[in-house]
């Protein structure tokens, strides 16, 4: 475990400690431990369908862990009452994978929704805030359009505008660039960086898009088999000695994962609880490349 050194002066905003979650007999989170510091963009990478989104859902109380502790600003959220959760959630803005805009509201009304529901500001002030957020994501001219009338990238941008409508301190992104062309994906990345640099927001991004991960991350955590197997700066991840990390970031061209998890990945089943270095098929410097090993291990 190569967890980056924690500077004591930087207070962690989010702390996961030994979080476990079993869903339908699968151990999705298995002693998941990591923290996110004030003002950083923390990117969680990992194979699809293995529980990265589940991690985000735990963070905003949409799911409860079986065991372990999740703290936000030092407050334990797993034992919160619904009312306390509601207050806690005001700290968060969440951009869901498909934007999750309300279908019967146009973009303006979608961004205004959290303001209408929560803030006691005047209609005029609300309109100013909506304008500011929609201009930030470059959608002010499309404010009258409905979610069904716009592209996926626009939906995500609108979802982002809504997520930050109440000026949250923490923004969570679930696959912000998936399904977007590289140019638009890059624009989303720029927006994420702008929020960190200009508004000092703490951000957690779940993605498997390595290019955007390197662009936006202050630190990257590799999620694998229910836990963080490495947390480090983009450079540390790029030069990682852990075969599973190399395997993931190189798109399977380098490194390797254990036999059983290769089978699990290829068969679409996320790996279970087995220990990481069990039955290594190929070391990173081994003469045999990883791909024959993968084929060989797949019955």
């Amino acid at each position: 475990m190569n967890v980056a050194q924690t500077t004591p002066s930087i207070r962690p905003v989010i702390e996961f400690t030994d979080v476990r979650k079993n869903l339908a007999g699968r151990q999705i989170l298995d002693s998941l431990t990591f923290d996110v510091r004030q003002g950083e963009t923390f990117v969680i990478i990992g194979y699809s369908g293995t529980g990265k989104s589940v991690t985000l859902r735990h963070l905003v109380g949409l799911m409860q862990p079986d065991a372990g502790s999740i703290r936000v600003d030092g407050e334990e959220i797993t034992t919160m009452t619904p009312n306390e959760l509601e207050v806690m959630r005001r700290k968060f803005g969440v951009l869901f994978q498909s934007g999750a805009l309300i279908a019967w509201l146009n973009l303006f009304d979608n961004v205004e929704l959290p303001l209408v529901e929560h803030s006691r500001v005047s209609k005029k002030r609300r309109a100013e805030i909506v304008r500011e957020k929609l201009e930030l994501v470059n959608l002010w001219n499309d404010r009258e359009k409905f979610p069904s009338e716009i592209s996926g990238g626009m939906r995500k941008r609108a979802g982002l505008a809504r997520a930050i409508a109440l000026d949250p301190r923490i923004v969570l992104y679930d696959e912000p660039t998936s399904g977007l062309d590289p140019v638009i994906a890059n624009e989303i990345g720029k927006l994420i960086n702008a929020l960190r640099d200009r508004l000092k927001m703490t951000q957690v991004v779940v993605t498997h898009d390595m290019e955007s991960a390197y662009d936006i991350a202050d630190r990257i955590g590799m999620f694998y088999q229910g836990r963080m197997i490495q947390v480090g700066t983009p450079d540390e991840i790029r030069t990682s000695a852990i075969p599973e990390v190399q395997h993931f970031i190189s798109g399977g061209k380098r490194g390797a994962v254990s036999k059983r998890s290769v089978t699990a990945i290829l068969s679409g089943r996320p790996p279970g609880m087995q220990s990481l270095r069990e039955e290594p098929v190929a070391a990173p410097q081994a003469p045999t490349p990883a791909s024959p090993a993968i084929e060989g291990s797949n019955p």
Partner: peptide, 22 residues
């Protein structure tokens, strides 16, 4: 159901908009 599977219900919840009320 479409709102549910497209995460709109979740989005309401994290915005602290009660989906039952809304």
């Amino acid at each position: 159901g479409t709102m549910k599977v497209s995460e709109e219900i979740d989005a309401l919840e994290v915005m602290s908009v009660n989906p039952v009320s809304y």
